[in-house]
Amino acid sequence: MKKKGILPDSDERQLYELALTILDADQGDDENGVFDTARILIEGHLKPRDCVLSGGVRDVY
């Protein structure tokens, strides 16, 4: 939604934080590691990171 301009950065961050809160509150049994994987992906979106995009342009988001 962010890429399409529907959701501002601050709202996107709130959605990821809410998803992380829901994961923490209701994990249940995670025998397959699905919740751990989801947490890693969500936390990755919450951390600012410096990456090199194709074409050599550096972007921080």
Score class of each variant (00 low, 15 high):
Met1Asp: 12
Met1Trp: 12
Met1His: 15
Lys2Trp: 12
Lys2Tyr: 14
Lys2Thr: 14
Lys2Gln: 13
Lys2Asn: 09
Lys3Arg: 15
Lys4Cys: 03
Lys4His: 11
Lys4Asp: 11
Gly5Gln: 05
Gly5Pro: 06
Gly5His: 08
Ile6Tyr: 15
Ile6Cys: 01
Ile6Lys: 15
Leu7Asp: 00
Leu7Ile: 05
Leu7Met: 13
Pro8Gly: 01
Pro8Asn: 11
Asp9Gly: 02
Asp9Val: 06
Asp9Leu: 05
Ser10Met: 04
Ser10Leu: 07
Ser10Asn: 09
Ser10Phe: 13
Asp11Arg: 12
Asp11Met: 05
Asp11Gly: 01
Glu12Tyr: 07
Glu12Gly: 07
Arg13Tyr: 02
Arg13Thr: 04
Arg13Ile: 01
Arg13Asp: 00
Gln14Ile: 02
Gln14Lys: 15
Gln14Leu: 09
Leu15Val: 08
Tyr16Ile: 03
Glu17Cys: 02
Leu18Ile: 04
Leu18Cys: 02
Leu18Gln: 14
Leu18Phe: 11
Ala19Asn: 05
Ala19Phe: 03
Ala19Lys: 05
Ala19Tyr: 04
Ala19Arg: 04
Leu20His: 08
Leu20Ile: 06
Leu20Gly: 00
Leu20Thr: 04
Thr21Ser: 14
Thr21His: 08
Thr21Trp: 01
Ile22Ala: 01
Leu23Cys: 13
Leu23Thr: 01
Asp24Phe: 00
Ala25Cys: 07
Asp26Pro: 02
Asp26Ile: 07
Asp26Leu: 09
Gln27Phe: 04
Gln27Ser: 13
Gln27Arg: 15
Gln27Asn: 12
Gln27His: 09
Gly28Cys: 06
Gly28Pro: 03
Gly28Lys: 07
Asp29Thr: 11
Asp29Glu: 12
Asp29Ile: 06
Asp29Tyr: 09
Asp30Phe: 03
Glu31Leu: 06
Glu31Thr: 12
Glu31Arg: 11
Asn32Phe: 11
Asn32Ala: 10
Asn32Cys: 04
Gly33Ser: 03
Phe35Cys: 02
Phe35Leu: 03
Thr37Leu: 06
Thr37Gly: 04
Ala38Val: 07
Ala38Asn: 05
Arg39Met: 02
Arg39Cys: 00
Ile40Lys: 15
Ile40Pro: 00
Ile40Phe: 14
Leu41Phe: 13
Ile42Lys: 01
Ile42Gln: 00
Ile42Trp: 01
Glu43Ser: 04
Glu43Gln: 14
Gly44Pro: 03
His45Trp: 08
His45Asp: 06
Leu46Gly: 03
Leu46Arg: 04
Lys47Glu: 11
Lys47Thr: 07
Pro48Ser: 13
Pro48Lys: 13
Pro48Thr: 14
Pro48Arg: 12
Arg49Asn: 09
Arg49Ile: 03
Arg49Met: 02
Asp50Ile: 11
Asp50Ala: 02
Asp50Phe: 15
Cys51Val: 15
Val52Ile: 15
Val52Tyr: 11
Val52Glu: 15
Val52Met: 14
Leu53Asn: 08
Leu53Met: 14
Leu53Gly: 06
Leu53Cys: 05
Leu53Gln: 12
Ser54Trp: 12
Gly55Tyr: 10
Gly55Glu: 10
Gly56Ile: 08
Val57Glu: 14
Val57Asn: 11
Arg58His: 15
Asp59Leu: 08
Asp59Ser: 09
Tyr61Arg: 13
Tyr61Ala: 03
Tyr61Cys: 04
Tyr61Met: 02
